[in-house]
Design a binder for these strands. Structure first.
Lengths: 339, 339
DNA sequence: TTGAAAGCGCTAACAG
DNA sequence: CTGTTAGCGCTTTCAA
């Protein structure tokens, strides 16, 4: 049996389609007699009517859909988010959206082009993009005049809303903490340092701290590969091969810290005894590993929720660009030793 | 400037809307002269035309949308998937869908009701449900006559496709491995044991193994709480309080294993010296912790890909129910000691 | 090989 | 307060 349509409901209730629509949407500036409304609601229940959101979108030009674009973790890798960070982000966004009658349309950013296509094909009402770099594809989105929220990006744009943290400060906090604990030879381990990316900022913070303490930044202390457990393990080996001059490391993501711990242990070195480590993100794993990771905490769930909120705000007429820098803090756990 | 519609393209190319539609969809049994087709394509390019999938859905009654329903990890918790398992699953599904011109519509299962509402509201072409239990809500879905794939479930249904693993066998393999290593006092640590749920099956496998070895199953060795790192830490305490009679534990999810390791370490006990552990799932964390976890490996990505494939198959007319039991295997790492 | 026309299910002026 | 009407952008008979 086919789903009932608004027409069926109208017939059942003995009113017009328009009236049904008014009742269902509680359309502003439209008063409906309580009696009629009741009849309509009854018909709805009786026929088990569920509105077709597609049709609604077509005429109202609102889809109640928010597109979420998440970068592929590594180029060429097929999957979106092996980094637990994205799972956290996504689930909080999903929840916030659902609470407000929206759904999330998920898309990996295959070719860059897909920003546009997802937005235009499906006519999403707004779009959230995580970790974008400045590209013409990103600029194109302006044409659509739908709200765009950029999460974790340093793209400068007069219109797009942004939400992130002070990555540079975070990098500095982490490094200063190490310095405060007596370390002067500090490695920086990260993935690719992309121009205008969060990692670059964290790196700058690292330099800030070092320079502030009168310590020279040495090229040989920078280990840049890719954000993965495996790479960090390799770094452990590399450090040793180079004679391990570092007493501490600041890693740009917790997962690297975990790899480092594991890699060192393989070589019979211990954290923090042989190397102190400070991580970044405070994903839930940070407290699970052993030793648990001292790291720069950020509220990932808040990022997701706020991103959705910005979209909703814009959709409900809030004018102007919104920006939010979420607070960060250093949480002390077990991976740093005073020397 | 508004997006161009099919009408604009038709005008630009000097043909009818119908013709444009034929060219774009390569409609079967419709021949179009190459010359006309070329003109249309040119117009499309010139106007930068992108079809409106909403409108297309409305008339073709196909949305190219696959709904994915993921259980809230814990009742009352607001977020979907703090368990990394879901991130892995989701990202592989997203990729498979995208490759085939589909998008994923994400939804947490708020009230059970939402199975229906997401499906009917948005008119998804198919729906993937993870970890469903038998409920009337689930049954209702039959009315829609869209393909349904149930992942990790033991719901018996003549129509819904299913994909999972042999959880009971997995439980047995894990436990037998411990027995083979000389353990006879083996704890089982898990979340809720729901009727017809995967955990129940794994538990049965545990019993199978014990009974097969002539070991009596003792109530006191069962620790059932919720699937979380924190709970497992609490279990460690509890074990000690009870005098820790166990020499080993089989945990129903890797994350519990990690919690146990950490909890024991807090009490100055070591894995596997003081307790051997076998996990389940082989999420990527399993190899990151220390000691790395001996666990029952399953191919999570394959689950996601296959689920999507089943939907696509059904949509393209493949008749009949499909079932797939994916292989599992025990991977030996460092968390078990021979005694 | 092409086009005219009738919807898909809903919203939104505009009348009444 | 309620109904009429005209689309939203596309697909799909059916005729030409």
């Amino acid at each position: 049996m086919k789903n009932a349509s608004i027409k069926d409901v109208a017939k059942e209730a003995g009113v017009s389609k328009a009236t049904v629509s008014y009742v269902l949407n509680d359309t502003p500036h439209q008063s409906i007699s309580e009696e009629t409304a009741a009849r309509v609601r009854e018909a709805v229940k009786k026929l088990d009517y569920v509105p077709n959101l597609n049709a609604r979108s077509l005429s109202s030009r609102k889809t109640k859909l928010i597109g979420v674009v998440i970068p592929q973790t590594e180029p060429g890798r097929e999957f979106l988010f092996s980094n637990p960070f994205y799972g956290d982000l996504l689930s909080s966004a999903e929840y916030a959206a659902r609470r407000n009658g929206y759904h999330l349309l998920l898309s990996g950013s295959e070719s860059n082009q897909s920003y546009m296509s997802i937005a235009r094909n499906r006519g999403v009402d707004g779009i959230i993009i995580v970790g974008a770099y400045p590209t013409k594809w990103l600029d194109e989105l302006h044409e659509l005049s739908i709200p765009v929220v950029l999460v974790d990006t340093y793209v400068k744009d007069p219109v797009y809303h942004t939400i992130g943290i002070n990555d540079r400060l975070g990098g500095r906090m982490a490094t200063e903490y190490l310095i405060k604990n007596g370390h002067r030879s500090i490695a920086f381990v990260c993935g690719q340092i992309e121009d205008q990316g969060v990692v670059q900022k964290r790196y700058q913070g690292y330099r800030d701290a070092l320079e502030g303490a009168g310590i020279k930044v040495k090229e040989e202390h920078i280990y840049s590969g890719n954000i993965s457990f495996e790479y960090a393990q390799a770094v452990a080996q590399e450090m040793l091969k180079r004679g391990k001059k570092e007493t501490a490391a600041f890693v740009s993501a917790d997962i690297l810290g975990m790899g480092l711990i594991k890699g060192l242990r393989r070589l019979n070195l211990r954290v923090p005894r042989d190397l102190s480590i400070v991580g970044f993100d405070d994903v839930y794993l940070a407290k699970m590993c052993d030793p648990s990771l001292t790291t720069v905490h950020q509220d990932i769930a808040a990022k997701g929720t706020t991103a959705v909120q910005f979209i909703l705000d814009a959709l409900s007429g809030e004018p102007g660009k919104q920006e939010k820098i979420l607070p960060i803090e250093l949480v002390e756990r077990e991976s740093v030793q005073k020397i």
